[in-house]
């Protein structure tokens, strides 16, 4: 079955990319490996049909996203980390604003930041900034922005309230913009 082998090779060729994708979310090599393995099995056994409408990689990432959410749901049940260190209700935003509610440091104009997309170093800095976020904050943010999961589904999977979810997302964004400012845009690259 030449065609089948060909398809298998093509799917396998995306393994490294899928692993990096899963690792961004799960930050656990074993769990990420399992999610990717499940994805490839589902793809190759035809549990998920490839309709040929999209690129193979896009299709695989689509399957992987579901496997990742399953893994997060499972982790969330196993570990009650509602208040993991750093995810508490620390008033960090108090340092970002003055008493009257104005910016302590007014957000800078990043000019045409999309130019950074062409720079390999930018992605390294972005991943570095993401790695610094507290665990739960990072998880909620990555589900929202990277997997594109709707907020209500994140709430269900992680068993948190929408308000809590918005607070964590807000914190993640504030921390990331500060980190990118310092580590990327201030460097006048």
């Amino acid at each position: 079955m030449k065609d089948e082998n060909h398809f298998q090779d093509e799917v396998e060729a995306h393994r490294t990319y899928l692993l990096r994708y899963a690792n961004l979310q799960l930050r656990n090599a074993t769990v990420a490996e399992d999610a990717v393995q499940d994805t490839l099995v589902a793809a190759l056994t035809g549990q998920q049909r490839f309709a040929g409408r999209s690129a193979v990689r896009t299709w695989l990432v689509g399957i992987l996203k579901h496997k990742i959410v399953d893994a997060i749901r499972k982790q969330s049940r196993e570990v009650a980390f509602a208040n993991a260190p750093g995810d508490g209700d620390g008033g960090e935003s108090d340092t970002l604003f003055k008493v009257d509610g104005h910016w302590q440091d007014v957000p800078a104009d990043w000019g045409n930041p999309e130019q950074s997309f062409g720079r390999k170093e930018f992605y390294a800095v972005l991943e570095e900034c993401l790695a610094k976020l507290p665990k739960r904050t990072r998880q909620v943010f990555m589900m929202r922005e990277h997997l594109g999961t709707p907020t209500d589904e994140i709430c269900k999977v992680l068993e948190i309230t929408p308000t809590h979810c918005w607070v964590l997302l807000y914190r993640a964004r504030m921390a990331l913009r500060a980190c990118l400012q310092q580590k990327w845009f201030d460097g006048a690259r």
Partner: peptide, 16 residues
């Protein structure tokens, strides 16, 4: 900056 952050995340992981 927030809009930029969203489009940046969509590009991760950087294409190999």
């Amino acid at each position: 900056q927030m809009a930029f952050l969203r489009s940046a995340l969509e590009r991760l992981p950087e294409d190999d």
